[in-house]
Amino acid sequence: MKKIGVMLALLMLGVIVAGCVEQTQTTTTEGIEETSDTSTPIATNTTSRTQTVVSHYPVVVIDFAGKEVTVNKEPQKIVSLAPSITEILYFIGALDKVVGVTKFDNYPENVQEGRTVIGGFSDPNIEVIASLEPDLIVGTSMHIKYLDQLEKIAPVIIIDPKSIEEIYEAVELLGKVTNKEEKASEVVNYMEEMIEETRSKVKGAPRVKVFYIVWSDPLMSVGNGTFIHDLITIAGGENIFGDAQGWPQVSVEEVLSRNPEVIILPPHAGISAEDLCNSTLANTDAVKTGRVYTLSSDDIVSRPSPRIIEGLKEIAGFLHPEIFNFTYQPLICEATTG
């Protein structure tokens, strides 16, 4: 009888152990394998691979408006409220998540195809945005006035870079919330390499005095604290209005007194290079020597996205053609007026 009792005891012990093993396996499907010390969960191999994806979220970030924004899961439907934002999302590999763009989005090519146009840059259609049921909306400071309405639809992140460094920050922030941090780092590293390469090439070269025309009437230029000013400086130039801040309105007399050696303007500045021949600015060294350059696109300097590097390459070529093997047809004025 004593032997039978021992055998029954062993049998019951086996059932208990088996039950514990089965319970542990069931717990594992929930994400971790519990041990006697519940404060120290041990991840199984299978679960570890799952946790690598899940553990990235929720993500909490501070956006450019100083708001704390929580993104609880990887965004699958993103609405972009600015072309520059769409471009950043493209470069970090998150464009496939974008469901809404503005009517001004034009990069990459055919970006509007298969996506809903949610209105203009400054006047997005809130109802259209809501109909897309996004799980993330990304805008600029232009859209803060719509914040209350937009936050009822989805988390809203505001990015508004004013310098090259802040473009890096914007790329990294969007990389973080879209789970594209590695790609975002690659993009920033590439930008930094191109900028450092340009700086290195112009090091020791004479600084070229530059007047950048943002708009012709009223005459507007760029000052310190803008990414265009940064591009001019990195490319080996001296912005003649670098002592101003932002986007200063300037007078023709000021331009003449500072006498730029190079004038740069975008295609849509309200004035062409040829128009300068018949203006008072014809008395600047830039016009006299034919060193008036028109960028290939407004977007490569006006949009704070990784494409700013394209703008840098063009500006560097304008300022130091001998260093960057740049050729450009000089402006030839048949006659100038005072």
Rank of each mutant, 00 (worst) to 15 (best):
L11S: 03
G14V: 14
G14C: 14
A18D: 03
A18T: 13
G19C: 11
T24W: 02
E34L: 14
S39R: 11
I42C: 00
T46S: 12
S48H: 15
D63S: 09
K67D: 14
E68V: 08
Q76D: 12
I78N: 04
V79Q: 07
V79M: 06
A82E: 12
P83H: 07
E87Q: 12
E87N: 03
I88K: 08
D105Q: 04
D105W: 04
V111S: 11
Q112S: 14
T116W: 07
G120K: 01
S122M: 02
S122K: 02
P124L: 10
E127S: 12
V128E: 11
I137K: 08
S141C: 00
I144Q: 15
K145A: 10
L150D: 09
S163T: 14
I164P: 01
E166Y: 03
I167A: 09
I167E: 10
E169F: 05
A170V: 04
E172Y: 12
E172I: 14
E186W: 09
V188S: 05
E197R: 12
F211K: 03
I213C: 03
S221L: 01
I228H: 05
T233M: 05
A235D: 06
N239Y: 02
V250Y: 03
E254C: 04
S257P: 00
R258M: 05
R258E: 04
P260V: 03
I263F: 11
P267D: 13
S272R: 11
L276C: 10
N278M: 04
L281Q: 10
A282D: 07
T284Y: 05
R291T: 01
V292C: 05
S296H: 00
D299I: 04
R307Q: 13
E310G: 03
L312Y: 04
I315S: 05
A316D: 06
G317S: 11
F318P: 06
T327F: 06
T327S: 15
T336Q: 14
